[in-house]
Design a protein around this nucleic acid. Structure first.
Length: 285
DNA sequence: ACAGGATCCTGGGGGC
DNA sequence: TGCCCCCAGGATCCTG
């Protein structure tokens, strides 16, 4: 389930491989993808070449010539790799872009929760994400903005972290991990946050994402990097997927609840809820 | 405004 | 062995 660190890893892997490559053909079209745009993919893409590969939130941004952009969202099971042409047949291949060096960029997505968008020069990228309501990058969050966005909401912290309009790129794994690092209970409401707690959460989000990037992300199930390598951060997760294991700080068993429609892992003892106590913890006020 | 559920989608795993 | 059911969760939509 790729979140920001996994997407960043893929972007870094693909960047040198796609640099200046020209598109010579499109041999698999994303027609089975959900929300697939009914455009002429071959006519739009063939002849264009890569300028840069970047990332915005969980989106992979391919900057192409003629000011066009190919945006790819991996959803939950998306994989993006460059392979040699004529390899083994691959299941769930939804986009195959042939390159001028005998290789191809393959977008595979078993569950089709991902998305592919093509933007022409007229559909400027500069305004696209703003219009989509995507929030700031986690490493560029203004502390005043952060406190205001959180503190003006009655929603719980888990839901706020998952909201891509507040901060882009955080998913279920790193939301739980950031809350653990900040010692804040996921059920705590934004409006209950004190400024210092909001700030420690902001820093925890930055820190956990940075740590995960340095380990090439977490491979829980399907994720592989752009070079086919698995991530290494799954071994550093402190609460996600560790239900019942002793908390690394206080040895209380890690709890799992359903929150904001997602499985949510936390330590009931050392993640404080400012009075909002989920499972009989004695912490907080 | 917010919570919660349903939806999309498939493969893996547990239980029987 | 085989079958059924549940689970995973990114984003979006709908309802209460």
């Amino acid at each position: 389930m790729p979140e920001l660190p996994e997407v960043e890893t893929i972007v870094r892997d693909l960047r040198p491989v796609l640099k200046r490559r020209k598109i010579t053909g499109v041999s698999r079209l994303p027609t089975k993808m959900r929300r697939a745009e009914p455009i002429d993919w071959t006519g739009s893409l063939v002849g264009l070449s890569w300028k840069r590969v970047t990332r915005r939130g969980k989106w992979i941004v391919n900057e192409l010539s003629a000011d066009c952009h190919l945006l790819i969202h991996l959803g939950m099971t998306g994989q993006l790799q460059v392979q040699k042409m004529g390899g083994n047949e691959i299941d769930h291949l939804h986009l195959q872009i042939e390159l001028d060096n005998g290789k191809c960029l393959q977008f595979r997505d078993v569950r089709r929760f991902g998305a592919v968008r093509f933007l022409t020069a007229e559909q400027a990228l500069a305004t696209y994400f703003d219009e989509e309501g995507l929030g700031p990058e986690p490493f560029q969050v203004d502390p005043a903005y952060w406190f205001k966005r959180l503190n003006s909401s009655q929603r719980n912290l888990k839901a706020l972290l998952l909201d891509q309009g507040i901060v882009a790129g955080v998913g279920n794994i790193y939301a739980d991990e950031a809350l653990f690092r900040a010692r804040l209970a996921p059920v705590l409401r934004g409006c209950d946050l004190k400024p210092a707690q909001a700030e420690s959460l902001r820093l925890a989000v930055e820190e956990v994402l940075q740590d995960a990037i340095s380990k090439r992300g977490s491979t829980i199930r399907d994720y592989i990097g752009g070079s086919g390598l698995k991530g290494g951060f799954q071994n550093n997760l402190r609460v996600y997927g560790r239900t019942g294991d002793p908390c690394v700080r206080c040895s209380m068993p890690v709890a799992k609840i359903d929150l904001a429609g997602r499985s949510t892992h936390f330590c009931p003892r050392c993640q404080v809820g400012n009075g909002r106590q989920p499972l009989g913890s004695k912490e907080g006020r």
